[in-house]
């Protein structure tokens, strides 16, 4: 079973994502900001991270840059999942090391297809 860490400051989004991911046979854990997510990754590296951009404490971008510097940080596939849907944001995310990008709102098919693209589903 693959593991996915859902990082989003919205409880509702985390719940929706968890529901979809569990339906796709993922073990799901959650974090509400980048700081919590880093701690979670240091404790146990997930296969995939579904990552919000705008969050308090530590943004998705700051988390991603920090993650990619850690010893096992290159391993997880990172799928941004954000309302930021402009080309400039998408390019910046890829440059920072994101593997895929989902523009909110998303549904099951979208998420599943992006997870397939990164080889996780």
């Amino acid at each position: 079973m693959k593991s996915c860490l859902v990082v989003d400051d919205s409880k509702v989004i985390r719940k929706v994502a968890r529901h979809i991911l569990e339906g796709l046979d993922f073990t799901v854990s959650e974090a509400a900001d980048g700081r919590e997510a880093l701690d979670a990754c240091l404790a146990s590296t997930p296969d995939v991270i579904l990552l919000d951009w705008n969050m308090p404490v530590m943004s998705g971008m700051d988390f991603l840059r920090a993650l990619r510097e850690t010893p096992l940080g290159a391993r997880p596939k990172v799928v941004f999942c954000t309302t930021e849907n402009g080309v400039a944001h998408i390019r910046a995310a890829i440059e920072a090391g994101a593997d895929e990008y989902v523009m909110k709102p998303f549904d099951r098919e979208t998420l599943q297809s992006k997870l397939q693209i990164v080889g996780a589903a």
Binding site: G86, I94, E100
Partner: peptide, 23 residues
């Protein structure tokens, strides 16, 4: 639409082959 473009299309291909126009 944003929904349609995300179904199955890898993000790098989207940037390479499509242009954003509004949503």
């Amino acid at each position: 639409t944003q929904f349609e473009i995300q179904r199955g299309l890898p993000i790098r291909r989207m940037l390479r082959w499509f242009e954003q126009d509004g949503d």
